[in-house]
Simulated scan of single mutants.
Amino acid sequence: MPKLRAFEISPLPLEVQASLEHLGQRIAKERKARGLSQRELADMAGISAQTMMFLEQGRPTVQIGHYARAAWLLELRDVRLLGGLSVHAE
């Protein structure tokens, strides 16, 4: 029997999924504004281009640390997930 991932057993609440999608869109927008390709930002973040693509789509399978690293690299100072978790670039 194949291993089930946690989100397959219990899907993320819609609010959480919407937050991930919004964050992914913000990261994509800022990446494009800086003239970076997905591959370039992925290399900077130490992840694959496919993971970066999934991150920008807001997929729940992407580790939250990858979202945080991308936001930090792009100096997104006001990133919040569900009004609690913050990523601050200083």
Rank of each mutant, 00 (worst) to 15 (best):
M1K: 09
M1S: 10
P2V: 09
K3R: 14
L4P: 04
R5V: 07
P11A: 10
L12T: 05
P13C: 14
P13R: 11
Q17D: 05
L20H: 02
E21C: 14
E21V: 15
E21Q: 15
E21D: 08
A28Q: 10
A28F: 02
K29W: 01
R31Q: 03
R31L: 03
R31W: 00
K32T: 09
G35Q: 03
G35F: 05
L36H: 11
L36E: 01
S37W: 05
S37N: 08
Q38K: 15
L41K: 00
L41W: 05
M44F: 04
A45L: 04
A45T: 04
A45E: 00
A49L: 01
A49F: 02
Q50L: 11
Q50W: 07
T51A: 15
M52W: 02
F54C: 09
E56M: 02
E56Y: 01
E56I: 10
E56H: 05
R59A: 11
P60Y: 08
V62A: 01
I64K: 03
I64P: 02
H66W: 01
A70C: 14
L74C: 06
E75K: 05
L76M: 11
D78V: 02
L81T: 05
L82A: 03
G83H: 06
G83Y: 01
G83S: 09
G84M: 13
L85Q: 12
S86G: 14
A89H: 12
A89T: 10
E90T: 13
